[in-house]
């Protein structure tokens, strides 16, 4: 069941990213101007945070499979903390952008940028909640399910980051 959910989410994000690429092809100057104002170093830092969180989640799964529940919980807590750090960094990035007067209606680029990153940020928050739920019992199947969702969130960011921030 989790794989049906994960693939549905991937299709939704894929369509969103496809729409972004098409819109960039239609309005290249608008998208280049919008992209030039983004801070790719902060987003790059967030990539390191989320990738490390994914590594911790993978270690949690491995520990759960060998019935090491305490270790699994510890890795899940690390994954959740790094997920929280990702959200904090992203919110700081939003605050800086909004402080410059940028918003949803500034340009087609920023409409899609805020929708895509906001949709992803909601999934990061939901992923932390799911990890917190499976962390209580740290049973193998629960941890596998929770971390699979978390890796989907990680995978989407890995693809989204260069498309939004770096591809010209």
């Amino acid at each position: 069941m989790i794989w049906v959910l994960i693939f549905s989410e991937l299709v939704a994000f894929g369509l969103f990213l496809g729409a972004f690429s098409v819109a960039r092809a239609i309005h290249p100057a608008v998208f280049a101007a919008g992209q030039a104002t983004l801070n790719s170093n902060i987003a790059g830092l967030n990539t390191l945070v989320l990738v490390t969180s994914g590594w911790a989640a993978a270690r949690a799964t491995r520990s759960a499979r060998t019935r090491e529940r305490r270790a699994s919980r510890r890795w899940l807590l690390i994954a959740m903390a790094l997920g929280g750090l990702f959200i904090a960094i992203k919110l700081a990035e939003y605050a800086e952008e909004i402080g410059r007067g940028v918003g949803l209606e500034t340009s087609p680029f920023f409409t899609l940028y805020f929708l895509l990153t906001g949709f992803h940020l909601l999934h990061v928050g939901l992923g932390i909640v799911i990890l917190a739920v499976v962390c209580r019992r740290a049973e193998t199947s629960g941890v596998e399910t929770g971390t699979a969702f978390w890796h989907m969130v990680d995978l989407v960011w890995i693809v989204m980051f260069p498309i939004l921030y770096l591809v010209r």
Binding site: F7, G14, G18, S21, V22, R24, A25, V159, I163, V167
Partner: peptide, 14 residues
């Protein structure tokens, strides 16, 4: 395939 399709589409559009 999802990964490949999304990155190929983005590259083709650019």
């Amino acid at each position: 395939a999802w990964v490949l399709i999304v990155v190929l589409f983005a590259w083709l559009a650019s």
